[in-house]
Design a protein around this nucleic acid. Structure first.
Length: 346
DNA sequence: AAAGCGGGGAC
DNA sequence: GTCCCAGCTTT
């Protein structure tokens, strides 16, 4: 039996029932594919339902504002996905009359859609013969065919794309693409179940004892440490907030005035106190409240929260800081570490 | 080619 | 702790 036939047969028996598999609506598929980028199915599923409920059509999505989209996206991470979706939804309405394109050549031009997502939407919505190459496919192909070219090198991306595209010829694209990804997600996992694998007898990695070294991936990311000291200034009814700008994590999300330091500090650190007083006046009182370690892929962020009392602020000199009702602040989109704090202390 | 971008689950 | 998830964009 061919590799492809075995994969598809395995899929028919073992596949999960997932909501985006029972539609050919390109908008719905797009929604699911963007949400699932670098995101596990279980984590993305509730967001998929939430977005579809709030935005049943691409026109509904296009009519949203950015805060609304990011609030729905809150907690899912990689927030540029949400911002790009709004941009693309508006483009679909403006340039495609609200009809979501299904051709790979059109999809690839849209913001937030790369090779993988264009192949996924075009194959699932219109059976275009474009092979998906995601983390699952890299793993399955590298093991089965014994390919040790690094999957995150340019040569590797080219090689695996070419191989995947050759393998899809003669298959039903929508089914085969789903099948090979599902096979990677459930059977040929990072820690695979070779004992029950239907193609084990032809698997190069298993035969050559390479299962635990394939796929090969280049270099580990070096993690940067940073210290964010948040200044919580609230009258009880109002609170001072900022919107995060580009060039850093959590772009466009809302948090508090913050002083970043290169090491841990406490509320009496002279340099820190000086900066706080420059912002909030000489009479300000700084009271430490809590601290937590927040982990991102590339950063370890030590977050300290300091509540301020007796503070004063000149909004003319600090146009980026705004005073809003606490309840209004809560309804804005926040990084996880801020929404956790807010729920606990505000 | 390399770096930046979240949060969470499995082990 | 490590690895990695239905990746994309920017430099």
């Amino acid at each position: 039996m061919s590799f492809q036939k075995a994969i598809v047969t395995w899929y028919q028996i073992n596949k999960r029932e997932l909501p985006w598999r029972s539609t050919t609506d390109a908008y719905v598929i797009w929604l699911s594919e963007i949400i699932l980028q670098q995101t596990r199915v279980e984590q993305g599923l509730p967001y998929f339902h939430k977005f579809l409920l709030n935005f049943p059509t691409v026109r509904d999505f296009a009519n949203a504002n950015e805060d609304e989209v990011l609030k729905l996206w809150q907690g899912l991470g990689y927030y540029s996905r949400g911002r790009n979706m709004l941009f693309t939804a508006q483009q679909i309405v403006a340039e495609y009359n609200g009809i979501f394109p299904v051709k790979y050549s059109q999809l690839i031009k849209l913001k937030g859609i790369g090779d993988y997502t264009a192949a996924a939407i075009s194959s699932f919505a219109a059976n275009e013969s474009k092979a998906v190459v995601d983390g699952n496919v890299f793993r399955v192909l590298s093991r089965y065919f014994g390919i040790n070219v690094p999957i995150n090198s340019n040569a590797g991306k080219k090689l695996f794309s070419k191989l995947a595209q050759e393998l899809i010829v003669g298959q039903v694209p929508a089914v085969y693409n789903q099948a090979i990804m599902e096979f990677g997600a459930l059977q040929c996992k990072p820690k695979p179940g070779c004992e029950t694998c239907p193609i084990a007898q032809n698997c190069s990695a298993l035969i050559n004892q390479q299962v635990n070294v394939l796929p090969v991936k280049l270099k580990l990311v070096k993690v940067k440490e940073r210290w964010l000291n948040y200044l919580v200034a609230s009258s009880g009814e109002y609170i001072l907030i900022k919107q995060r700008q580009s060039g850093d994590v959590w772009q466009k999300l809302y948090d508090f005035p913050v002083i970043e330091t290169s090491r841990a500090i406490n509320s009496t650190d002279p340099h820190f106190v000086g900066q706080v007083k420059a912002l909030f006046g000489e009479e300000v009182i700084i009271r430490p409240v809590c601290q937590k370690r927040h982990l991102l892929t590339h950063q370890i962020i030590y977050v300290h929260f300091f509540v301020l009392e007796n503070y004063m602020i000149n909004f003319n000199q600090h146009a980026d800081i705004k005073s809003v009702l606490v309840d209004d602040f809560k309804s804005l989109p926040h990084p996880k570490v801020i929404s956790d704090f807010t729920e606990m202390y505000l």
